[in-house]
Amino acid sequence: MSRDANQAVATPEGNPDPQPVSIRRNPLTTAVILAATFVVWTFLVFPAVWIFVGSFKTNETMFSATAFTFTLENYATIFRVGFGRFIFNSLFICLVAVVISTFVSVIASYVFSRKRFRRKRLLFGAVILGQLFPWIILVTPLFIMFARIGLLNSHAGMIFSYVAISIPFSVYLLVGYLETVPRELDEAAVMDGCSQFRIIWTIIFPVMLPGIVATATYAFLLMWTEFLFALAFLTRTSLKTMPLGLAQFFGEQSIDWGAIMAASAVTTLPALVLFLPLQTKLSAGLTAGSVKG
């Protein structure tokens, strides 16, 4: 993510001052602008709202704009066919992967930010370019590698993959965050002869906590909705994650829209709850990789 774009994404929340540019009160222009705004609002919000509305509708009224019969049957259905298992799998894989990826990324970001060593920019560049690496190219060779070492159809394989996809932007974000932490803080500790890990744990970690939480949240969201690797590496139903479980409702013959909407709602809700607070203090580069898949 470029500096320009980063700041760009970071500022809209914090700059409410209206600029005193040409105030002309042409009623026609105003009407056009307001109309356009409402069209845009509808386009943006309508589909997402329907996930939640649809999840409480019976399949008979699913496609009706007006008829609405409230039901919890869709939620009952998805849990009856084992969606709870997918939720558990997703939670387990994502939480373990987030902890590992955050842990190794914090250490690496400290090294990149505070140490001087040869080929530092090259190594950092290699890490960052991982953000732009096309995942689809990795699917085939990773599948072969996993097949040979027995990581197919295993949560360990998924955790490994999810740690690897979140390291590049985690390191990038954390290095950016560390730049805002005064160096005097940890340099003093170096003078006092503290060990590296002690410095990271007792000095860096506490002051970096907001940055770490934001980075970990972002990593979690990325993993939570990841589809491609899960599709390729998990074929046993008992191991599948939520996105796969969701896609499974598209049957060959019939589509149970009620179940799909309920499963979509369950998938989206944590994303909304985590994403909105994160976005309000979105800092450098949190957008990188957000639309990958």
Binding site: W50, W224, M261, F275, Q279, V291
Partner: peptide, 15 residues
């Protein structure tokens, strides 16, 4: 504006 952005791609396609 944040609503579509917070919607996971897989859910966006579904809806």
């Amino acid at each position: 504006l944040l609503v579509p952005w917070a919607t996971p791609p897989i859910v966006a396609v579904v809806v």
